[in-house]
Computed example of a mutant assay.
Amino acid sequence: MKRIYTAFVLLGVFWGSNFIYMKWASSLISPAQISLLRVFFGFAPLAALAWHKRAIKLHQVRHLHHFALMAALATAFSYFAMAKGTALLPSSIAGVLGASPPLFTAIASGLLLREEKMNRLMVYSVALGMAGIALISRPWASMSAGDAINLTGVAWILSGTIVFGLSYIYVRRFIAPLNIAPLAIVTWQNGLAFLMLLAVTDLSGIGQILQSLHAAVGLAVGLGLLGTGASFILYYFLLQELGAVAAAGAIYITPIVALSIGWAVGEHVGPLELFAVALIFGSIAMLEVGRQRIGRSEAAPIRGAVSCD
């Protein structure tokens, strides 16, 4: 159990620290170059583990169109949007907004999946989360002098989280029924995303990342090896040990880590930011409670039938 708790905490820390690494790199190279290097260094440990586990099979090529769509949207675009938004925002704010995919997954699930209906508590939780996003974005203050919140940056972060959240619907409908090992799926996904980014990214000046040791190490080790590659491995370890809901709970740690790092490097973290985090944190927790209630209500008739027999 100690290994499980350690993996859970590490996953939250890796996710939450991604934003400061993107922020450091954004002063030297473009968001597309950040995304390219992130996927490259993240793909390396995944490919090594997949080779060791013999997870990649020739027959999986027939599902290449599914892997390619996930690579284009959930990886290449989402990572680019996160890097683009983080370049325009304080890393702490980007980290809080980046923890919102569960909200958009819940909305999309309720609209697109018949078996994933939202109850009243889940509707309230989504509204609460949206209030937290609005509070930390402060659109009413966008025209004021010296305002630190760039709404273009907010839009980029949210577009990345929305696409990432919607990707779970696609996985649920089209990829999960294929019964392919998760390690194989993410290896294909990251490998194809690297090729896509390599094809469209202007590499001019990418070597400038080496001008700053902490930015280069942060990008390669923090964002790539740990924040992407190792995070996928930790997530699927927790998925096997705890199940999907508990594994995804590491998202709770993300905004706390991002805010703490932002505060440590001198970014403003005031009562408003903390209150917004509390709203988003609370909304995600309420979502899980709402899902559990639906699960219990659906299981109750089955249990009743068994006891009557």
Rank of each mutant, 00 (worst) to 15 (best):
I93L: 15
S27Y: 00
A215P: 08
G110C: 10
P182W: 09
R54W: 05
P301E: 07
G229V: 07
P177S: 08
D202E: 14
G95N: 01
A7T: 13
A72E: 06
R296H: 14
N119W: 11
R303D: 10
L111G: 07
I133R: 14
M70W: 06
A176R: 12
E241W: 03
L198A: 13
G270H: 02
R296W: 12
F41T: 04
G129I: 11
V171Y: 13
N179K: 15
A216I: 01
A276P: 05
M286A: 15
A278I: 07
M143L: 11
Y5L: 15
S17M: 04
S307V: 14
I93Y: 05
A176M: 10
V269N: 01
L223N: 12
M143P: 01
T187A: 05
I136D: 07
I149N: 08
V154L: 13
L279G: 07
E115F: 02
I157T: 13
A74S: 15
F41G: 08
T201S: 10
W156T: 03
S92H: 00
V163A: 15
A131P: 08
G146S: 14
N119T: 08
L198R: 03
L213P: 11
L225D: 02
T161Y: 11
A305R: 15
E267Q: 03
G132K: 08
Y168P: 01
Q33Y: 08
I280P: 06
R172F: 13
I261R: 00
P271V: 11
Y235W: 04
G165D: 13
A141N: 11
P31A: 04
K53P: 04
H268P: 02
G146V: 10
Y5A: 13
E267P: 00
A250H: 15
M1G: 12
I206K: 03
F41P: 03
A193E: 06
L234S: 04
A44C: 14
A215E: 00
K53T: 10
L97Q: 09
A55Y: 10
I294W: 03
I206T: 04
P139M: 13
T86H: 00
A83R: 00
F67E: 07
A131Q: 01
G42N: 10
P177L: 07
F41V: 08
L135C: 09
R172I: 07
N18C: 09
A244K: 10
A145R: 11
I29P: 08
L158H: 13
S204L: 06
L46K: 11
A193C: 01
L28C: 02
L242F: 01
A72W: 03
L219P: 04
G266H: 06
M196R: 06
P139I: 09
N190Q: 14
Y170M: 06
I162R: 09
S78M: 14
G222E: 05
Q60F: 12
Y5F: 11
T105C: 05
N179G: 12
K2R: 14
S260I: 10
D147K: 08
H268A: 13
V13N: 05
S144I: 06
A55W: 05
M1S: 12
A220V: 12
